[in-house]
Computed example of a mutant assay.
Amino acid sequence: MKASLHSAQDAAVPLPADFEAWLDWLATQRRASPLTLKAYRVGLQALLRMADGRPVAELESQDVRRFVARLHGEGLQGRSIARHLSTWRGLYRWLIRHRGLRANPVLGVRPPKTASTLPRVLSPDQAAALLEPAAENLLETRDIAMFELFYSSGLRVSELAGLDIEGGLDLAEAMVTVRGKRNRNRSVPVGSRAVCALRAWLAVRGQLAPAGEPALFVTRSGGRLSISGIANRLGQRARALGLSVHVHPHMLRHSFASHLLQSSGDLRAVQELLGHASIRSTQIYTHLDFQHLAKVYDATHPRAKK
């Protein structure tokens, strides 16, 4: 509760010109995504609140460590604090290079450790229960096409929302090309069921989308469906079908990766399909795979049964 309260307070803090200049540099020179820039802005606003009027050029390492302790005391988790520290570290690097600042007080400061949590995934049966019921109306035809593509290709929700009718989707080749983090393009196969669902949606899309609308997935009023709109529709479908878990967009991406790794055992291939820059980000799915194997062992091995 305290963390969310302070987040709302931070959002109202205006940023100094140097902070805005750094964000603009990230957007133009590093091609940071809007979501990344939004996260950085939140981190910068938190830094200003922690500094309480002191110029950031005067802050020292002990100040940053005190800020970390305060954030942790407010209920912010280690992963969120780590994101803030990364933001602050990047800001100071830029200030040293472009504004002549002498030292980076964030260097060497680490976030508090938090217990690692594995991503929640749907079982193959739950995924089938979510995707297999036939559409009963126009919006459900759209939704099934979205969720089939989501699960088939392991897209990020921002990548799904950003797809256009031209340029990204090639049903003849059963491939989709998306622009991911840091504006990197990657091409991912599209499964046969997703291809069928997308063809069904494209056949009726014109009933919602006006001429000239580029978005592949549109709202009932014809505009591009937003990230939050996708999340809401996915949650509604899961509840309507009686799934016993809270289904959110990233769960479909996690499920794609986990199920693919269970079937293939090819971690490098999963890394490429997910668009992870580092194999470390993909390795979490090996833990999920081990959990699956452990359950199979407990259920089937004669010396594991009670």
Results as ranks from 00 to 15, higher is better:
residue 97 R to L: 12
residue 299 A to D: 15
residue 80 S to N: 05
residue 183 N to I: 02
residue 194 A to M: 13
residue 54 R to P: 02
residue 267 L to E: 12
residue 280 R to D: 14
residue 77 Q to N: 10
residue 105 P to C: 09
residue 283 Q to A: 04
residue 83 R to C: 04
residue 34 P to A: 14
residue 27 A to W: 09
residue 232 N to S: 06
residue 103 A to E: 14
residue 189 P to F: 05
residue 84 H to N: 10
residue 22 W to K: 08
residue 233 R to Q: 03
residue 239 R to I: 04
residue 74 E to Y: 11
residue 91 L to N: 02
residue 35 L to A: 15
residue 275 G to V: 00
residue 207 Q to E: 15
residue 162 G to N: 11
residue 100 G to F: 03
residue 130 L to S: 04
residue 214 P to Q: 07
residue 276 H to Y: 01
residue 166 E to S: 06
residue 118 L to K: 11
residue 174 A to F: 10
residue 195 V to K: 15
residue 6 H to I: 15
residue 142 R to C: 10
residue 79 R to F: 00
residue 40 Y to T: 08
residue 183 N to D: 13
residue 34 P to L: 09
residue 89 R to D: 05
residue 1 M to D: 07
residue 104 N to F: 04
residue 78 G to K: 04
residue 73 G to E: 10
residue 101 L to V: 12
residue 223 G to L: 04
residue 168 G to D: 13
residue 155 L to W: 14
residue 136 E to W: 08
residue 106 V to F: 05
residue 267 L to F: 08
residue 75 G to W: 10
residue 112 P to D: 07
residue 116 S to G: 12
residue 279 I to N: 03
residue 55 P to C: 01
residue 300 T to W: 12
residue 249 P to A: 07
residue 150 F to V: 02
residue 279 I to T: 08
residue 178 V to C: 02
residue 71 L to A: 14
residue 254 H to A: 09
residue 162 G to D: 09
residue 27 A to F: 05
residue 192 S to D: 15
residue 12 A to S: 12
residue 178 V to I: 08
residue 298 D to Q: 13
residue 296 V to P: 01
residue 139 L to G: 11
residue 183 N to F: 08
residue 142 R to D: 02
residue 145 A to M: 14
residue 238 A to C: 07
residue 69 A to Q: 08
residue 117 T to V: 13
residue 255 S to C: 06
residue 291 Q to R: 15
residue 86 S to D: 12
residue 234 L to Q: 06
residue 209 A to L: 11
residue 44 L to E: 12
residue 190 V to S: 11
residue 88 W to V: 03
residue 112 P to K: 13
residue 223 G to D: 03
residue 231 A to N: 05
residue 103 A to W: 04
residue 217 F to Q: 07
residue 165 I to G: 01
residue 251 M to C: 11
residue 10 D to P: 00
residue 96 I to A: 04
residue 290 F to W: 09
residue 289 D to W: 02
residue 173 E to G: 10
residue 206 G to F: 08
residue 68 V to L: 05
residue 143 D to Q: 12
residue 210 P to G: 11
residue 132 E to M: 13
residue 68 V to T: 06
residue 55 P to V: 14
residue 13 V to C: 08
residue 251 M to W: 05
residue 57 A to P: 03
residue 13 V to T: 15
residue 92 Y to V: 12
residue 140 E to Y: 00
residue 190 V to M: 01
residue 84 H to C: 12
residue 135 A to T: 06
residue 164 D to K: 08
residue 151 Y to H: 11
residue 200 A to S: 15
residue 193 R to I: 01
residue 241 L to Y: 09
residue 82 A to Q: 03
residue 191 G to L: 10
residue 124 P to R: 09
residue 153 S to Q: 13
residue 192 S to W: 08
residue 90 G to S: 09
residue 264 S to L: 03
residue 81 I to Q: 02
residue 136 E to K: 15
residue 151 Y to T: 03
residue 288 L to A: 13
residue 75 G to M: 07
residue 56 V to D: 03
residue 134 A to Y: 06
residue 305 K to W: 02
residue 19 F to P: 04
residue 99 R to N: 10
residue 19 F to G: 02
residue 81 I to H: 01
residue 120 R to E: 15
residue 225 L to G: 00
residue 191 G to C: 12
residue 60 E to V: 14
residue 40 Y to M: 10
